[in-house]
């Protein structure tokens, strides 16, 4: 499919290009913020599973450009962002991913595994802090979806719980946590776990997230860990036993799955105004824009990250035979 037909199919894809975002997912965070006012008084934020970096872009633009007139319709060049950042040195945005990420001005990008114990001191170092004082932890991480639903939902839950473990290590009391969640058969179990740490847990679906997609976002507000809780990446919770003594507790957890209906379900909020674009709708775009200028389809800000099968495709081309290998 050409990029111009994708423009019609996906209004947020087009909008992301026009506004200089690396991915359409930027609007999910923007709409979550519009609903929950997530960025209010936020100066320290950690973005997990950040590549290609659209959430970091949103964070950078929203937090460091605060107070200025923002023109959302004009693509901001990266140099502009640098200048703005320099004027607001106190905001710290740390973005982590295992994949390399093109640097973003005003964002500290680290290539690190969020589950690894050594990541915590690394993050704290870059936050220039020795204690947990992060206001907001966000994670838009998703696995390679295989199509085996139970496995996909398990892996996604593990990504979320890994993010939660890191969040418990870095969040200040009453900080917030936002993460992608798959609303599958065991989603209630995750809601219950999150509620132990946060006063308010809401599941939100931004209008920029397609209705046909299983994804939604948990917005966990006001971090209040249970008394005596010791956050640790050495012995993370709910991600499998890390000691013999963890086994009894983990088994008890598993047994709870049997009564999913009896479990607590987070309240749902659809966010994003009805006047905003509908990610499920097909739009008839006029050939010209509001100024009568012929609309041209622009290139994506950053080509998508190289797919894992890129080399395989090149090999097929090299081997010839019309791409047919027996």
């Amino acid at each position: 499919m050409g990029k111009s037909s994708k423009d019609k199919r996906d209004s947020y894809y087009r909008l992301a290009k026009e506004q200089g975002y690396r991915a359409r997912s930027a609007y999910k965070l923007l709409q979550l913020d519009a609903q929950f006012n997530l960025f209010k008084d936020v100066t320290r934020v950690v973005d997990l599973c950040a590549a290609p970096g659209s959430w970091s872009q949103v964070l950078s633009r929203s937090l460091v450009a605060k107070g200025k007139d923002r023109e959302p319709n004009v693509a901001q060049s990266e140099t502009n962002e640098v200048q703005e950042v320099q004027s607001k040195p106190k905001v710290k945005i740390v973005a982590l991913d295992l994949q390399p990420m093109t640097p973003l001005p005003g964002v500290i990008t680290l290539q690190a595994d969020i589950t690894h114990p050594s990541t915590l001191p690394l993050v704290l170092k870059h936050l220039e802090s020795d204690s947990a004082n992060v206001d907001l932890v966000v994670s838009d991480g998703a696995p390679d979806v295989t199509g085996l639903h139970d496995l996909d939902e398990y892996i996604q839950a593990q990504l979320l719980l890994a993010a939660l473990n890191l969040a418990t290590c870095v969040l200040r009391p009453s900080g917030n946590f936002v993460a992608k969640i798959f609303r599958g058969r065991d989603v209630a179990e995750l809601y219950c776990k999150l509620r132990i740490f946060f006063e308010r847990v809401t599941v939100a679906k931004p209008r920029s997230s397609r209705g046909s997609s299983i994804e939604a976002f948990v917005v966990c507000e006001n971090y209040t860990p249970p008394e005596g809780f010791q956050p640790s990446l050495e012995n993370p919770i709910w991600t499998g036993p890390t000691r013999q003594e963890d086994i009894a507790g983990q088994i008890a957890e598993v047994s709870l799955d049997d009564a999913p209906s009896g479990r607590w379900v987070a309240p749902f909020v659809a966010c994003g105004d009805l006047s905003e674009w509908d990610s499920d709708a097909t739009y008839q775009l006029p050939d010209t824009d509001e100024n009568g200028v012929k609309r041209v389809s622009i290139d994506p800000i950053q080509p998508p990250t190289a797919p894992p099968y890129k080399t395989a495709i090149e090999m097929r081309r090299k081997l010839g035979n019309g791409g047919k290998i027996n």
Binding site: T115, I155, Q158, L159, G240, P241, D246, I247, A248, I251
Partner: peptide, 14 residues
């Protein structure tokens, strides 16, 4: 729980 025996992992990754 006592029927299980846990062994340390050389590298806890997904």
């Amino acid at each position: 729980a006592s029927r299980y025996r846990w062994y340390p992992s050389p590298e806890r990754c997904l």
